[in-house]
Nucleic acid binder design. Structure first.
Lengths: 337, 337
DNA sequence: CTGAAAGCGCTTACAG
DNA sequence: CTGAAAGCGCTTACAG
């Protein structure tokens, strides 16, 4: 590898001047700068980020923390899209992404220890449990961070307007004549799951519909299986709902499977609405009516927020609420006639 | 942050001894080691990976290079699974993942420059074009690497047994009575696409079926749209095939959509077989018959190969051929009666 | 078994 | 406008 010393020797200038020229400092003569840049380029020189990081105490590296129970990591249909948006934006600003886990080598460490170990300039926390103590510690630490799908005043947070999304879902179902509407919730440690349960209740209130406790079944996690199992419980009810609003698309897809397995049809017997609008939603049969979150935007905004925080330490923390929209496909049906 | 100097001062030993104790060197007395470890732990000390990397010229970091035309990056239904497998395995060995792109800050650089800039110990190249000059340069460089879905003698490579996969697909279709079998290929810069086209030809030969040129349509890229468009071309033929073998699941799903849009049915009018067995394959209707690649295994093997190469420079390069299997679902139909 | 010193490749006061 | 020197936090010969 060619180092700054090599460039210095070749050009006859000191490493100080070479460094300054390379970093485009103003106090270098144009002529010198031009020469140094040319030689550096010809020699194929570029700085060693490690050495640079050690002196500058800045790595131009962003940590990605992926907390989720399902263990699917990057295969996550929603968050992989978020991360991609985040990545593209971060790279524009010269930041590379590093995955941060709970280990350093073989030793169990906290996320925050790992983040300091790697010297990342900031972290994005994805898919977190609102009550994970390690995430809490991270949020309270001085390390710049942005957290998705959690609320906190102590760092930057971003989430979709879950409450409004629920209202859109119920508006839609109500307009199709549905009044017996059930909810498949996912409140195990999930902020969004809790929000959507709340939004469901508020939306029913809006139409003066009473909420039957048996119509709210907690699937626990946002998974296909939990949606499937929750739906089966609803199907066993004496008075089966005509519509189901699931807290996520994966759950909705599991629910539709349960409906089919019971010999019924969605939407002919039961209408189903999901939440997220993952890639799959448009490809299954019936196409899934759902509340779309803008995953890409969420990632991009997260990058902007985090990088701002890194560049300006005094920056106040932001809370960003992202818009959602209703996507009508074939899993919901008008039952007014 | 607490540094090795702090631990040295606190324990009364030199940083040399502290370093040795921390790294579990044999030539430190048990008593000393124990004391140092205790104090270090109590102080919340752990080494700074940046400083460590600078002296050791090793970062315990693996670069991920994601080359693909579709621009979907981490959302890729097949490769996101591969990466997840790779990640989990790499982390077990203490390596963290960093994404390598073609920029350093705002400046366009090659992958290899970026990899050196970040000092990664090795790279995995995913989804590459076999003829991408930058990938070629990378393969030929001394940087340890493992490349997926490409063949080369100059580095470690891993790919599924595409040829055999094609044979399985055609065996299946032939056994269902199909003889008019078309192929939707994806040969634009893709090794796997080319392999599968070859495998298709070999399999037809096996049954003495002649290959009609009009039955081979090159979709170009592995995308939904290209599958859709390719199928439309097949549907315009005077003698429409009874079965289609697509070079990937996404293409197969696009093809099925084209069949539906033409007012026909898969599998009643045309049977369709894909390749990959992505998550979606089991959820669409009809469930997609396909050739499964073991994406997770591909990722894990890649990590093993790469880490071996890093730890033992004299290690010979390996070529690993991964098994595939036929997954029969509902998109193929017996037409013998 | 332990320590003083050099060095990894940069950047940045400080001085001129 | 330019350079000598210190320092970032480690590891590793080298010496004892």
């Amino acid at each position: 590898m060619v180092t700054i010393y090599d460039v210095a020797k070749k050009t006859g200038f000191s490493i100080t001047t070479v460094s300054r020229a390379l970093n485009n400092y103003p106090d270098v003569s144009e002529k010198t700068k031009k020469l140094i840049l040319e030689v550096a380029d010809k020699m194929g020189y570029f700085p060693n980020s490690i050495a640079r990081s050690l002196t500058m105490k800045k790595t131009f590296t962003l940590g990605v923390i992926f907390v989720e129970d399902l263990g699917i990591g990057m295969k996550h249909p929603f968050f992989s899209v978020v991360i991609e948006g985040f990545k593209q934006r971060a790279e524009k600003f010269g930041f590379d992404l590093v995955f941060i886990n709970r280990f350093i080598g073989e030793d169990r460490k906290s996320y925050i220890d790992h983040a300091y170990y790697r010297g990342v300039d900031g972290v994005i926390v994805v898919c977190s449990h609102y009550d994970d103590p390690e995430v809490k510690k991270l949020i309270e630490s001085p390390l710049p961070s942005v957290v998705l799908d959690v609320h906190s005043d102590q760092t930057n947070v971003i989430y979709s307007n879950n409450i409004y999304g629920c209202e859109l879902a119920i508006d839609h179902l109500y307009s199709l004549g549905h009044q017996k509407i059930a909810h498949i919730a996912a409140t195990d440690g999930s902020f969004t799951g809790k929000e959507r349960l709340k939004g469901f209740g508020l939306a029913l209130d809006k139409y003066g519909l009473t909420i039957d406790d048996s119509y709210i079944v907690n699937g626990g996690l946002f998974s296909y299986e939990s949606g499937y199992n929750a739906m089966n419980r609803l199907l066993k009810l004496d008075d089966v709902p005509t519509a189901v609003f699931a807290s996520s698309d994966t759950m909705a897809i599991g629910a539709i499977k349960a409906i089919k397995d019971a010999g019924l049809s969605a939407p002919d017997d039961i209408s189903v609405v999901g939440f997220d609008d993952i890639e799959l939603a448009q490809h299954i049969t019936p196409g899934l009516t759902t509340i779309r979150q803008n995953a890409e935007l969420m990632g991009r905004k997260a990058a902007d927020l985090l990088i701002n925080q890194i560049n300006d330490e005094d920056e106040d923390f932001s809370t960003i609420l992202l818009p959602v929209e209703l996507i009508i496909r074939d899993s919901t049906k008008d039952i007014t006639n």
